[in-house]
Computed example of a mutant assay.
Amino acid sequence: MHVLEKQHEPADVAAVALKAYARVVDGWGLTQREAAFLADMSESTWKRAKKPGFSGELTKDQMLRLSAVIGIYKSLELYFSGKIAGSWMTRPNSGPLFSGRRPVDTAIEGGLPQILHIRTYLDALRGGA
């Protein structure tokens, strides 16, 4: 006899991801516009999406963005102290991926590929690679 895993509905997964993402961007002090663009949404969609009971669907790209941003948050919290972790994405950075710009700006401009580069960069810092 096999035990079947409970299948999670895409809307349930999206709701959990949106709730976590909202906490992250609030913690980083992002504007509505920055939070929306980082998630590849319009501002009006983001305003609706962050409310409980949002019934819209997220694209695969949006879900990957949310997941990667949550991973960035987790890496920052593990690698840096609370104050630095909370401001790292919104402070100018001279690191190789940022050229003196704020990581959040490069992530918005570069989309999912840049978000994933930032996540990999932080994972490498944390892992000592």
Rank of each mutant, 00 (worst) to 15 (best):
M1F: 09
M1Q: 07
M1H: 10
M1K: 12
V3T: 06
L4C: 11
E5P: 12
K6S: 13
Q7M: 11
Q7I: 14
Q7V: 14
H8N: 10
A11W: 00
A11F: 02
A11K: 13
A11C: 07
D12Y: 05
D12H: 07
D12K: 10
V13I: 15
V13Y: 02
A14K: 00
A14S: 10
A15Y: 00
V16W: 02
L18H: 06
K19P: 03
K19S: 15
K19D: 14
Y21V: 04
A22G: 14
A22Y: 01
A22F: 00
V24S: 11
V25A: 15
D26I: 00
G27L: 07
G27M: 00
G29P: 11
G29D: 05
G29Q: 09
G29A: 05
L30E: 00
T31W: 10
T31V: 04
T31G: 06
R33A: 13
R33T: 11
F37N: 04
A39F: 14
A39R: 09
A39S: 14
M41H: 01
S42E: 10
E43K: 12
E43G: 05
S44R: 15
S44G: 14
S44I: 11
W46Y: 12
K47H: 00
K47V: 05
K47C: 01
K50I: 12
K50G: 06
P52L: 04
G53M: 07
S55Q: 15
E57D: 09
T59I: 13
T59Y: 01
K60V: 13
D61T: 14
Q62N: 07
Q62I: 06
Q62W: 09
Q62K: 08
Q62D: 05
M63Y: 03
M63I: 06
M63C: 04
L64R: 14
L64C: 07
L64S: 11
R65G: 04
R65E: 04
S67G: 09
S67K: 13
I70A: 15
I70N: 14
G71K: 04
G71P: 02
I72Y: 04
Y73R: 12
K74W: 03
K74H: 12
K74P: 03
S75G: 01
L76A: 09
E77I: 06
E77C: 02
E77V: 11
Y79E: 08
K83Y: 07
I84L: 13
A85F: 10
G86Y: 00
G86R: 01
S87D: 01
S87R: 14
W88P: 02
N93R: 10
N93H: 00
N93W: 01
S94N: 15
G95T: 03
G95S: 15
G95E: 14
P96Y: 03
F98M: 10
F98S: 09
S99G: 05
R102W: 02
P103Y: 04
P103G: 05
V104R: 12
V104A: 11
D105M: 02
T106G: 01
I108G: 05
G111M: 08
L112C: 08
L112V: 11
Q114Y: 02
I115E: 08
I115W: 05
L116Y: 00
H117T: 00
I118T: 15
I118H: 08
R119I: 03
T120P: 03
T120W: 08
Y121M: 04
Y121Q: 05
Y121F: 15
L122K: 10
A124M: 03
L125P: 05
L125F: 14
R126W: 06
R126D: 13
R126S: 11
G127W: 02
G128H: 05
G128K: 04
A129V: 13
